[in-house]
Write a protein that binds this DNA or RNA. Structure first.
Length: 771
RNA sequence: UGGGGCGUCGUCUAAUGGCAGGACAGCGGACUUUGGAUCCGCCGGUCGUGGUUCGAGUCCACGCGCCCCAGCCA
């Protein structure tokens, strides 16, 4: 087994993020030497685009680090889980390209071991059987702002707990009669720590373990311990589990080195921000509603955000991976722009989809001066894609063109068919429209035109050709159904609505009957095409048959023309609304100080402290005490910023390890110009970490200040290294001053006096010549 | 309103006290037998107010806003 190692940035599948930073540090420190993650879906529904992103994080990171990613079914609830979902998960995860080798696991396979672990906790007085009814348990748990109260059963003897738990396992009690709970803290402000339930009685048949069990472990118990059993090192999950981490750590800590679990490696949970997608819902409940109401044809409807739906629509896994990559990982919950998904799909298809022609809304065009059939050669790819291959397309007297490509009264900028104007038929001739034939309702039913002599493969002189449109031969084209798939919801955030169905987009599926050029009959059925000017399509894998072709639109082409028209219409309709006033931020209100505190603040101000420092000294006893102690060594106005800002965090946490005398001495070094502020802060941090005196650290690190003439060569050298930056600075990009200072600081290993550097640099740069 | 988490261009994401950068979207141009692709350019951001610092998106304080937690779901 190859051990994990930090990948180069260029070879990462998953862009660097806060998790990879943690992993890098864990690897460097030797805390772990093999990275093991897991993707833990519950088999209670079909995987969707959210699972694609989560698995990208879990499996992608493991892959980058040459570690392992286990696929584990988190199947601890027999009421909701089914084998068909397991099958779907495995199928879809394979499709995405993940490879878990032999590491396919089921939490249900651990039931026996988990039981032993529960028994171990009971024996050590860390878990107990609670016999309170469900409502009472809820009641006793308290609320977020009221602490819970211990169950009367909390102090049962170990023997009784053991006996009861065994009886629970042996199905001697009815559902709900007892639960096993961890004995942690009923008063904890973290609700998850108020004696979390570990096991419940469920008289249900499990899809894998059948009727062998009638107690089932809860997520909070099974998940961390399954991780531990499998040797998972980094258990990545989304942000709603942040508070569960306390339970996770508690269990790992209590069970490490016991009941067959090793001391090390121990798993740790890291949470990332959830991602949602605009115009999309993914919750199982909501998806079911769409299916049940017949708003979609099923879980694999091409409009569904399920992986089976996306696959049926024609999206390739490569596009989903690219999408996940661009979305990225952070601690923040985010909603991603749907345009990013569409970009990923197009970007994936553009280089691989052969171009062919199809007409989705046919309008007959008859060419008066053309007879017979001419077979024209048309390349499959445009020059910029640079791929070989072509097919023959038949050109005949009667053609179909797109209804929308003809206009009786065209808008400004029209580049398509129009009476009296010349337009290119793609890969074929230029045609001039003679007249349009309309029926009694004024609808155009037929176009009459003429081909322009000598316009095949060349632009005839003296004729202005407006644009090029697609077409098919009415004689040879193959009838086909086109399913124009669009977003399922009209609103970008359907989840935020009281009734998400009110945002259902009735135009999410539009079915058109038209024609495709005959060459497609020769291609493999799963070929993804670009129907020129229409979008990317492929045959619906379920409904398309040789004698009844059905094409799904995978994604439209980016259509700047349509967008412009749309906006022109919108702008015409809308009366301009007055630009609403920006919501004003609330005025700031600082918590009031008590009279005594106010008086302290006044005294501090008189001593020369700044407003902010005085306020904090008055309000925070730990800081005040320290500052008072320090006044024996240093005037308070000098000491205050250090105490408040630099030492503040440690003082508040009660973790400060630097005595006032030491700090005073350090500050004196700064005042005397022996070291820089930055160096002092560095020494202070080091001192907090090690407990050694900061002045000793200063000496040890050889900290000191370079100034004046010692600085000149460094500055000259720096400026000489970046002549372009110097030019940019002189051209007005003054922000570069900080960059130069940083460079000089780096060159001097932090020893340069930044104030002096700034002045010298400024003088040097503003004065003129470099040399 | 107890506890926890999170706030960077319209959207997603970089910057680990030193040039606020990239991508998507948008806008403009070049090119084009796809109103596609490609190329070039532009637009646009550190939630607010103070403080510390030579220098703050980053550190400190106080606000503001959003999300999560009271399943015997995961």
């Amino acid at each position: 087994m190859p051990r994990s190692r930090i990948p180069k940035d260029s070879e990462r599948l998953v862009p660097k993020n806060f998790i990879t930073e943690i992993i890098d540090e864990d690897l460097r420190s030797g805390r772990y030497d093999l990275i093991v993650t897991r993707f833990p879906p519950e088999p209670n529904g079909y995987p969707h685009i959210g699972h694609a992103i989560a698995s990208f994080i879990d499996c992608g990171i493991a892959k980058d680090y040459r570690g392992r990613c286990h696929l584990r079914m988190d199947d601890t609830n027999p009421l909701t889980e089914e084998q068909r979902y397991v099958d779907a998960i495995i199928r879809d995860m394979r499709w995405l390209g993940w490879d878990w080798g032999e590491h396919l696991y089921y939490a249900s396979d651990y039931f026996e071991r988990l039981y032993e672990m529960a028994v171990d906790l009971i024996k050590r007085g860390l878990a107990y059987v609670d016999s309170l009814p469900e409502e009472k348990i809820r009641e006793y748990r308290g609320t977020p702002d009221k602490p819970g109260t211990p169950s009367p059963y909390r102090n049962r003897s170990v023997e009784e707990n053991l006996k009861l738990f065994e009886e629970m396992r042996d199905c001697k009690h009815p559902e709900g009669a007892h639960v096993l709970r961890a004995k942690i803290d009923m008063a904890s402000p973290n609700m998850k720590l108020r004696d979390p339930i570990l096991y419940r009685i469920l008289r249900a048949e499990h899809y894998r373990t059948g009727n062998r069990w009638c107690i089932y472990p809860m997520y909070d118990f099974a998940h961390p311990l399954s991780d531990f059993i499998e040797g998972v090192t980094h258990s990545l999950c989304s942000s709603e589990f942040i508070e569960n981490r306390a339970v996770y750590d508690w269990l790992v800590e209590k069970l490490a080195g016991r009941v067959g679990l090793p001391e090390w490696p121990r798993p740790k949970q890291i949470e990332f921000g959830r991602r949602s997608l605009e115009y999309t819902v993914v919750s199982k409940r909501k998806l079911i509603k769409l299916v049940e109401r017949g708003l979609v044809s099923g879980w694999d409807d091409p409009r569904m955000p399920t992986l089976s739906g996306l696959r049926r629509r024609g999206v390739r896994p490569e596009a989903l991976i690219a999408f996940a990559q661009r979305v990225g990982i952070s601690r923040t919950d985010r909603t991603v722009d749907l345009a990013l998904l569409e970009w990923a799909i197009r970007d994936d298809l553009n280089p691989i989809a052969p171009r062919v022609m199809a007409v989705s809304e046919p309008l007959l065009l008859e060419l008066e001066n053309f007879q017979g059939t001419e077979w024209l050669k048309a390349p499959y790819f445009p020059p910029d894609v640079g791929k070989p291959g072509s097919r023959k397309v038949p050109f005949t007297k009667r053609l179909y063109v797109e209804r929308g490509d003809f206009s009786l009264k065209p808008p400004k900028g029209w580049k398509r068919l129009e009476v009296g104007k010349a337009t290119r038929l793609r890969y074929a001739y230029v045609v001039v429209i003679e007249r349009a034939i309309t029926n009694e309702t004024g609808e155009v039913v037929k176009l009459i035109g003429r081909v322009v002599e000598g316009s095949l493969g060349a632009n005839p002189p003296g004729i202005k050709v407006q644009g090029a449109i697609h077409w098919v031969s009415a004689e040879y084209a193959v009838p086909a159904e086109f399913r124009l798939v669009d977003r399922l919801f009209k609103e970008p955030h359907p989840d935020a609505l009281k009734d998400f169905l009110s945002a259902y987009n009735p135009d999410s599926l539009i079915v058109k009957r038209g024609f495709v050029e005959p060459s497609v009959m020769e291609d493999p059925k799963d070929t993804r095409y670009q129907f020129e000017r229409l979008g990317y399509f492929w045959q619906d894998p379920v409904d398309s048959k040789p004698d009844h072709l059905v094409f799904n639109r995978i994604v439209t082409l980016k259509d700047t023309w349509a967008r412009r028209r749309e906006e022109a219409l919108k702008a015409a309709k809308k009366t301009s609304k007055p630009a609403g006033e920006k919501p004003r931020k609330m005025a700031r209100k600082v918590p009031e100080l008590s009279p005594e505190e106010a008086e302290i603040k006044e005294r501090c101000l008189r001593l020369g402290l700044g407003e902010q420092e005085a306020y904090l000294v008055a309000r925070e006893p730990a800081i005040r005490a320290y500052l008072e102690e320090m006044s024996a060594h240093l005037p308070p106005d000098q000491a205050a910023p250090w105490v408040v800002h630099t030492l503040g965090p440690w003082l508040r946490r009660g973790e400060n390890r630097v005595p006032p005398a030491e700090l005073a001495e350090l500050v004196r070094l700064v005042e005397a110009g022996e070291i820089t502020t930055r160096q002092a802060k560095q020494a202070l941090e080091e001192a907090q970490a090690t407990g050694r005196p900061p002045t000793a650290i200063v000496k040890e690190l050889g900290l000191g200040v370079l100034r004046d003439e010692k600085l000149v060569p460094l500055i000259e050298e720096t400026l000489a290294t970046f002549p372009d930056k110097v030019a940019a600075y002189r051209a007005g990009k003054k922000g570069l001053l900080g960059f130069f200072i940083g460079e000089v600081m780096r060159k001097s290993s932090g020893r340069a006096d930044p104030k002096a550097v700034r002045e010298l640099l400024k003088a040097r740069l503003d004065r003129g010549t470099l040399e």
